[in-house]
Amino acid sequence: MSVDPWTLLAILVMASITYATRISGVLLGGRLKLSPRAQAAFNAVPPAVLVALIAPSALATGGAETIAALAAAVAATRLPLLGVIAVGVVTVVALRAFGL
């Protein structure tokens, strides 16, 4: 049950940033006004970041990963989160077994 001091520092930095974003609306008191265009850009942040994070492992690792990523994306249009994970993992394990 050890805690690395550098890891603890990283956790505290992440925690401070996350809390700052959560409490910001209370502190701003609803004074933040965004144009619809800025709001559209803001709304695009979570999917853009999530996709940017996984694009290398989905597109630049190998055939099995790319095909499984496409299968998971299709599953995401009709299944809950756990179903998406199951489809992705089962597909990649099957394709790796075939040597892709």
């Binding site: 550098w6 930095v13 940033i17 974003t21 409490i23 609803g30 803001f42 970041v49």
Partner: peptide, 24 residues
């Protein structure tokens, strides 16, 4: 390891930016 604190901070800001709108 060791934790890349700057990269983690930037990624946390990007992912959590939506909280500002939700909280407001």
């Amino acid at each position: 390891h060791p934790a890349p604190i700057l990269a983690l901070a930037v990624s946390t800001v990007l992912i959590d930016a939506r909280h500002v709108l939700m909280s407001t």
